[in-house]
């Protein structure tokens, strides 16, 4: 299989309310990530920076799925170890303990028989894919609201206004070993990926995200427009979007093309 091209675009903005941008992103083909830091006094910026720095070390390693899972996990553990050292330093300097932590949403190209997307998330930063069938949220938020939704205790409408909608149940922090969820998708099932922080997905709804991703063919435009829309909707939090397109796949993916041809010929009566 020929190498696929990954086209990407990324945008981030501090928003209208916050004073600092604690989001961070990574575009280092073939690894992409967003991280939403939290914790006062620069702790959030430090945490999200650690996360993308560690994940950035995965670039260019051409791992298989299984090694990829271990490698992502190791990156997150290294991030945790650094956060621990940072927390230690803060405690030693007599300041208040920084409750630093960060979310992470990661997409890495892995190479089994065919290249695949290995995706991982911790917290409420999201991974979406856009396919012919529309927008699909791949990741599951590690958030109180998501757990209440899963338990059937609130509706989606209630979730959008729930007072605890910013409370996440997993994060990369000094305190606990990272517990990412992983996802493995064939490239053909995710020709456009969106990684975003809740400053995007919390400000604009999925229909708007889908419309913007569909309208803007260039991933750079798509990312910028998503962040712009989040700002226009209020910009209450740092907003970050990374859009990645898999280019050159259809030519290689024989059976889809062949299937289309077959069905066309069948429709035209050329085949029984």
């Amino acid at each position: 299989m020929a190498a696929v091209d990954l086209h990407h675009g990324a945008a981030t903005d501090v928003g209208h309310v916050r004073e600092a941008n604690e989001d961070a992103f990574l575009v280092a083909p073939d690894v992409f990530a967003v991280a939403d830091g939290m914790g006062g006094h620069a702790g959030g910026e430090v945490a999200s920076a650690y996360a993308v720095q560690e994940l950035g070390r995965l670039t260019g390693r051409r791992l298989g799925s299984r090694a990829g899972v271990e490698a992502v996990l190791e990156s997150l553990v290294r991030c945790q170890v650094r956060l621990r050292a940072y927390a230690e330093g803060q405690a030693g300097s007599g300041g208040p303990a920084p409750h630093s932590g960060t979310t992470a949403a990661v997409a890495m190209l892995v190479h089994d028989e065919d290249p695949r997307w290995l995706l991982a998330n911790v917290g409420d930063s999201r991974i979406y894919r856009l396919t012919d069938a529309g927008l699909d949220q791949v990741s599951t938020d590690h958030s109180v609201v998501q757990e209440l939704l899963d338990a059937g205790r609130i509706t989606a409408e209630e979730a959008a206004e729930h007072p605890e909608r910013h409370v996440i149940t997993r994060a990369l922090s000094a305190a606990e070993a990272p517990e990412p969820d992983f996802f493995s998708l064939p490239l053909a099932a995710a020709e456009r990926l969106l990684l975003c922080t809740d400053g995007v997905s919390g400000m604009i709804d999925d229909a708007t995200i889908e419309a913007l991703l569909t309208r803007h063919e260039d991933p750079r435009d798509a990312a910028e427009q998503l962040v712009a829309a989040a700002l226009a909707a209020g910009g209450r939090d740092n907003a970050t979007a990374v859009v990645v397109d898999v280019v050159g796949l259809a030519k290689e993916h024989a059976y889809d093309a062949q299937q289309q041809k077959l069905s066309l010929e069948t429709k035209l009566g050329a085949l029984p």
């Binding site: 916050r18 604690e22 939403d36 939290m38 006062g40 409420d124 338990a151 205790r153 994060a171």
Partner: peptide, 11 residues
């Protein structure tokens, strides 16, 4: 302290 996202307990 200065942001929206915070870490809480699982439901």
């Amino acid at each position: 302290h200065d942001g929206l996202t915070q870490l809480g307990q699982p439901v």
